[in-house]
């Protein structure tokens, strides 16, 4: 018996050139072929860094050691996730001709949005690596495991892009929900604050506090951010639980996204 998932994956692999071309099209349109273009991808995180530094350090008075690199290690992976998902969610309905008029694996469309963001992410990450020594934390040998971490996050994000692009085909207002979800998710991830700050969170209603603490500690993005910081800043191997969670989240997201997309994409050509 033929396994449909395997067939789909094989077909996706055979048509990888289309995916790469779509990625290049996205990037080229965005940057118009200039290398300086990457500057724009850096500008956003740098502005955010400035704002959060002012607000957290000087307005609220929270002091995090080596905040700039601490922040970037969390924020760059976050930007990768949030850009990928926001760009991929409407990608299928924005490219009706690729769905209705030609035959190709539909997953190419959202995944190409993810890969375009991945390329930007990797470039900004390289710049971060080059900048780290100037902040007194030259990356150690564990930085060599970075590609593996990035790959795991890309698979995780890929699953989400499939999930959201497929649901956007059926429900056009997923975009609005997504915007809200991303804001909530951002603040439930220890990007601008260290996770140690919330270990003893006291809310007026204790159960809610427990839930929030649990989410801040164990949500997928928190786990990834934790790994990035361990590898980049502490040159430490993350603990077993963290690694196990990374694996579970990565495979879980990929499996859910893939299966849901495969189920609903068979009829995309009729409904898009």
């Amino acid at each position: 018996m033929k396994c449909p998932t395997f067939q789909d994956l094989k077909e996706l692999w055979l048509r990888r050139e289309v995916l790469l071309n779509l990625v290049m099209r996205d990037l080229e349109v965005k940057y118009k072929g200039s290398v300086i273009g990457i500057f724009w991808s850096l500008l956003n995180p740098l502005m955010m860094l400035l704002i959060y530094t002012i607000v957290f350090r000087y307005v609220i008075g929270m002091n995090v050691k080596n905040f700039p690199v601490f922040f970037m290690c969390g924020f760059l992976p976050w930007i990768f996730l949030s850009n990928s998902v926001t760009m991929a969610a409407p990608s299928v309905i924005n490219n009706p001709n690729l769905v209705r008029k030609v035959y190709m694996p539909k997953s190419i469309i959202p995944l190409s949005a993810m890969v375009a963001c991945l390329v930007e992410f990797v470039m900004t990450l390289i710049i971060l690596l080059l900048a780290l020594p100037f902040f007194g934390c030259a990356p150690g040998y564990l930085a060599f495991s970075l590609p593996l971490v990035v790959l795991a996050q890309a698979i995780f994000v890929g699953g989400l892009t499939l999930l959201f692009s497929a649901s956007t085909v059926h429900f056009r207002d997923v975009k609005h929900l997504l915007d809200i979800l991303l804001i909530v998710w951002f603040w439930l991830t220890p990007i601008v604050y260290p996770v140690s700050k919330v270990a003893s969170l006291k809310l007026p209603w204790p159960p809610l506090g427990d839930i929030v603490v649990w989410l801040i500690t164990y949500n997928p993005m928190s786990v990834f951010v934790c790994v990035y910081r361990a590898v980049l800043l502490q040159n430490a191997v993350p603990d077993v639980l963290t690694i196990a969670l990374v694996v579970i989240y990565t495979l879980g997201s990929a499996a859910c996204g893939w299966l849901l997309f495969a189920r609903s994409s068979a009829r995309f050509a009729e409904v898009v």
């Binding site: 289309v18 349109v29 008029k101 030609v102």
Partner: peptide
Amino acid sequence: TLLELGSGFSMELSGRKNIFMNASIL
């Protein structure tokens, strides 16, 4: 499948680049 001409064309890019895009889709 030639149901439509120029699938995947991007207005911003040159004709040459669009050839490769369109060709891979076809």
